[in-house]
Amino acid sequence: MVILGEVRTSLLHNSLPLPRDAVADLLSLRPGRQVTATDRPINRTVSPETVIGVDCAIASEPRVRARGIGTVAAHAVVVGGLVAQASARVRLEWTADRERKPWAHYARRRGVVEVLGGVTAEQVLAGYHRPGRQADTMDLGAVCQRLLTQVQGRPQLDHRTGLRTRPTSLRWTAVAREDERPSVRLHIDDEVQRTLQVVVPPDLLGEAARFCEDLALHDWLYTALGNVVGQAERDMAIGADPMGVLNAALSLLVRLWMPGAHVDLALRPLWQELETTPGFTESWDRQVAWMRDQVSMRTLSALQEARH
């Protein structure tokens, strides 16, 4: 069994973190459907699921004619009232059909895409992970982007930018294998694009999406903090004041760091794997410490100057 997914992560377009009730309101994208929220250890609110019907080519490597028919399941997530994510996924099921069935058949099975044609799971996985999307094939990124744009345009937001950050996108696949320990492979393709391969036992396949969303969140935080450090160094190099960007990052981003907090216990070992190589939290802590040092040193010298 194979799941393909994509998560796009960006800063919510609001000057300050949004209170939890406002977040619930923000994510009530479908009338009559409830959002789900968890408050401990940090607020995480998930919008009702939307489904999008697809009938399109599926990327594969080497390229084989393959058609996918079914529905993409997508939802939006807001963490800490501050970070917005859009997450789309499909579970692939192979079928011997040669024609499309009535839509009612697909509509019943939310988030399942049936694959027609002689393509293998390996070819689809390789096609999904190849750099640069194949033209005119199923595009989960577009589904994510549309959802994200919808959330970011909602009237609950004041549309003021507290900190300039780059959205990131994480494309993931989860494969179910019996009798195999869960494992994970993260690849940083470029500054904003990541690919992730997860292997889990079949009973945990449904939890994989949550893990990938959590990883996407932390990878985004890590990237955003790195960019802040870069901007601060650039400011310092030309004698400009880096305090604005440092303060914004310290007050907005730092408290969101909680790897694995919202992940199923059985999948937390995956986080431990990533903490060993490439290592996340240790390096995050060091960056935060550097930023705090800069702020305190500058505060100190400003005080001394004021005294003279």
Binding site: T149, Q152, G153, T161, R164, T165
Partner: peptide, 12 residues
């Protein structure tokens, strides 16, 4: 409007 807002969040 969506594109310009999105890019303004990313670029100075």
């Amino acid at each position: 409007a969506e594109l310009l807002t999105r890019l303004d969040q990313e670029y100075s």
